[in-house]
Nucleic acid binder design. Structure first.
Length: 545
DNA sequence: GCGATCACGT
DNA sequence: ACGTGATCGCG
């Protein structure tokens, strides 16, 4: 339809065609079936059309059926489910430098390609739809994943505002300090080299300066120079490890956040528009890219400073609402463990309680350091961590870590039961599920290699927990989005960061919107333990968090 | 273009 | 446990 170059036959033309199609595209009674409908919606949105009646997205159906697959593109799905080899985009448009714009592709080829796309998607619906029914995943597919598409679309289109001058100035400040550190590093090293190259850095540290090699990298067995190694080396009488740590922090923040976010922000509105991907994470979580707004720094002075650059529009505030310890609460629910459940019902500090339980001490004897250990163990257990990893994590010896873990399973009997049950079920069925029946296959659960098998077991323990948390927040997002719209709020959902939602709230809705948000987040589903949401409002994301 | 390393988040 | 991205250095 956009083919305009000379030589193409006369046709109705894009604008006229869209004008004719608009009523159908915007009619929610006309069901739309296709591949990656959020993307299609964005394309139409750019032409002032609001695609409605999203019924069946083949990409998302494939993801619900098997979220562990690496690919959900149409060519793969055609091959996998229909045993059909579809024309690839490359075949019609070429690749690399010679790649044509689709509107320059030969008209005959272009229309055939487009029709094939539509036809394959429709045929896939039959097969995928049947599978969804068989797996009892229709509820999850239609009422969660499909319903989430317009929510994510709105979030992406809205975007979040950043303070560009703030980031640019901060970047300048970082540059000056980096130059300074760079000089000092060269002085200490007695040579100039590329500090950003782990390989060159390794040569300087371990060959030239003869620092001890504490770790080798997993693939190539090169000398590791990561934070942990550098931190240990910082205890030695050399200045260079500390300088490198500082250099790493600053250059990471500058390159990954300050500079790239400024480049990606809309030149007119100053807003950043991420893509929320619904078919990437094997557990059911969302992911975010271009830019990834789910890994904005929060720890460290400079890291937090970056959050101050995420701001609310004039006359608005940012509101952050995050689930307090959702994963541990879901874990408590699954375990059915009385002590665990009681801790949450009584609103106790869960890490303090855990410390008291596994160290057999009174709660008043729990020091900050003991609490820190218990916290790491709580996290370790939901990741299915073994004593090896845990001892490494905490810097304690293997034996002590082992004792803590057995004490944990001893004290929280329900947790041990959950672990055995979920691994047993995975071995038998080949997959695990979340509370809402989201499935993840674990083909290696019966593998003969112990290391590979253990990894699958950790996934079996973690996926129902992480995945249920993902299900819960997705359902809350759908309800909140629906209510904000229906009840005429101007507050808008901007971001989801796994257990946190960020909103932009007009000043006159500060008294009303948070109540709605809290009630939908906390009250959507009753677990054996209450769900708790912490909320804060501020002019920027740091203040709101 | 791609694997490896490193570092940021939940 | 689950992600994304910058950079390097090889092919």
């Amino acid at each position: 339809l956009a083919h305009t170059c000379p030589g193409f036959p006369e046709h109705v033309g894009r604008d006229r065609a869209l004008e004719l199609l608009k009523p159908v595209l915007e009619d929610k009674a006309v069901a739309k079936v296709g591949q990656n409908l959020k993307f299609q919606s964005i394309v139409f949105n750019n032409r002032g059309i609001e695609l409605a009646g999203l019924r069946f997205d083949t990409m998302i159906a494939s993801y619900v059926i098997n979220p562990g697959l690496k690919q959900h593109d149409l060519n793969f799905l055609a091959q996998h489910y229909l045993n059909l080899r579809k024309t690839t985009f490359e075949e019609v448009a070429g690749k690399g430098k010679g790649r044509k714009c689709f509107s320059d592709v030969d008209l005959e080829q272009a229309s055939k390609y487009s029709c094939e796309d539509a036809d394959v998607a429709l045929r896939l619906m039959e097969v995928l739809g049947k599978q969804l029914r068989e797996d009892e995943n229709e509820e999850l597919f239609y009422n969660v994943e499909m319903a989430l598409i317009p929510v994510l679309l709105d979030m992406e289109i809205t975007g979040i505002k950043i303070d560009k001058p703030f980031f640019s100035e901060m970047s300048e400040t970082f540059s000056r300090e980096l130059d300074q550190i760079e000089k000092e590093i060269y002085l200490e090293a007695g040579t100039e080299f590329n500090i950003n190259s782990p390989q060159q850095l390794g040569t300087v540290l371990f060959d030239k300066l003869q620092l001890p090699i504490l770790k080798r990298t997993s693939k190539t067995k090169a000398h590791s120079t990561d934070v942990k190694v550098l931190t240990k080396l910082a205890a030695l009488p050399f200045k260079i490890p500390k300088l490198l740590l500082r250099y790493r922090t600053l250059s990471k923040l500058k390159a990954t956040y300050l500079d790239s976010l400024v480049k990606l922000a809309d030149p007119v509105t100053g807003r950043l528009h991420t893509s929320f991907n619904q078919t990437v994470a094997a557990t059911g979580r969302l992911s975010s890219s271009n830019p990834n707004l789910q890994n904005i720094p929060i720890r460290g002075e400079e890291g937090r400073e970056i959050r101050r650059g995420f701001v609310a529009e004039d006359g608005c505030r940012l509101l952050s609402a995050d689930y307090s310890q959702v994963e541990l609460r879901i874990f408590a629910h699954y375990s059915g463990d009385d002590a665990f459940i009681e801790a949450f019902r009584e609103q106790e500090d869960i890490h303090t309680r855990t410390a008291a339980e596994i160290m057999s001490i009174g709660r008043e004897e729990v020091t900050p350091d003991r609490r820190r250990i218990a916290k790491a163990i709580n996290f370790g257990i939901i990741y299915g961590m073994g004593p090896h990893k845990l001892s490494e994590e905490l810097g304690i010896d293997h034996e002590t870590a082992k004792n803590y873990i057995s004490a944990y399973y001893e004290r929280y009997r329900g947790v041990a039961r959950y672990r055995d049950e979920v691994i047993g079920a995975a071995r038998e069925k080949g997959y695990v599920t979340t509370l809402f029946n989201r499935r993840r296959y674990l083909p290696d659960i019966n593998h003969k290699n112990r290391i590979i098998r253990s990894e699958a077991e950790r996934m079996a323990i973690n996926t129902p927990i992480q995945g249920t948390a993902a299900d819960l927040i997705k359902m809350a997002m759908i309800r909140i989005h629906g209510r904000l719209k229906k009840e005429g709020f101007r507050s808008r959902m901007l971001l989801q960061v796994h257990d946190e939602l960020v909103f932009e709230v007009p000043e006159d809705e500060i008294d009303t919107a948070p109540k709605l948000i809290r009630s939908e987040m906390e009250g959507g589903f009753q677990l054996k333990v209450p769900l708790k949401v912490d909320m804060k409002i501020g002019r920027n994301w740091d203040e709101a968090h």
